[in-house]
């Protein structure tokens, strides 16, 4: 490695050209601008920044992903009903249009920021970062980030979350994990939602869904839940309890003010009024 700029040695030959003319060649194994940088490095950089912010405040951030209509917002409503007195919850909602989902969450008395993405089919770290400026992190225990309903693109963007939760509703095919391996491979928890409908659906086998998740080398739990049957949500709530404990333990062991602003992008962190 070059001791001055940190670039690495490459085994490949190099050509240096001027207006199409090769002015110099370098044989293999000499010096190059080998970069090996993740193409998503800018997003990853901001995501790390978001993660630091959240860790500074001991906030657990959960990225909820699924196809449209699998019950993310209904799950959040039921979760707020059950855990709203235990944890201070906040929500970032991602949708192409409308503030409907944020309004549903706000109706439960929980602060919610709506990110309207236009034609963008996923949330990225910058959107979450900017949305955080509208929330008072000191007043939040659990931040749910409801991603845009889409099983493809959201899988590729780190938002700074502590965990990914993917919903698979019983009205979808039980082979969704096999069809969307990138999404389901990255899930820390897979919730089979609308499970109250399983008895009337003859083509959804929860065991097959679990097997497809395992085939992605993913050992995540895959419980069956229904937002309409709060008693079925216990595995989900227990999982949240464990994640909150973990976030708090990490926070307790964290030096105060560890997160310094080393990043290059210029922005300010002014307190923004909570939108409720």
């Amino acid at each position: 490695m070059c001791e001055y700029c940190g670039c690495t040695t490459t085994p490949e030959a190099i050509e240096i050209k001027d207006r199409g003319r090769v002015v110099a060649t370098r044989p293999a194994d000499t010096h190059s601008i080998e970069v090996l940088t993740g193409i998503l490095s800018e997003n990853d950089h901001l995501a790390a920044h978001v993660r630091d912010h959240l860790a500074d405040h001991g906030v657990l951030a959960v990225n909820l992903m699924s196809s449209p209509g699998s019950g993310k917002t209904s799950l959040l409503e039921a979760t707020i009903d059950a855990l709203g007195d235990t944890y201070r919850i906040a929500v970032i909602e991602g949708d192409l249009e409308t503030e409907n989902d944020a309004d549903r969450v706000r109706a439960k008395g929980v602060p919610a920021i709506q990110v309207i993405t236009g034609q963008t089919c996923h949330l990225d770290a910058r959107m979450v970062h900017d949305a955080l400026h509208g929330l008072d992190l000191g007043q939040i225990d659990v931040l749910f980030i409801e991603n845009v309903g889409n099983l493809v693109c959201p899988a590729s963007f780190d938002l700074g979350q502590a965990a990914n939760v993917v919903l698979l509703s019983a009205t979808e095919g039980d082979d969704k994990p096999a069809k969307y391996p990138v999404m389901f491979r990255g899930a820390d928890l897979v919730l089979i939602t609308k499970a109250d409908l399983i008895p009337v659906l003859d083509d959804f086998d929860p065991e097959k869904a679990r097997s497809h998740v395992r085939d992605l080398a993913n050992g995540a739990d895959v419980p069956e839940v229904s937002a309409r049957r709060p008693e079925t949500l216990k595995p989900w709530f227990d999982w949240i309890d464990r994640q909150v404990d973990h976030a708090r333990q990490s926070h307790a062991g964290r030096p105060i003010g560890e997160h310094a602003h080393h990043h290059h992008s210029q922005h300010h962190h002014e307190p923004v009024e909570r939108q409720t």
Binding site: T10, D18, V23, A24, I33, E34, T37
Partner: peptide
């Protein structure tokens, strides 16, 4: 998802050839 390397062209810098 990696950017492995870039090949760059420089303005007239024939001395580079001797590097």
């Amino acid at each position: 998802l990696l950017l492995k390397s870039l090949e760059l062209e420089f303005p007239d810098q024939p001395e580079v050839a001797e590097a």
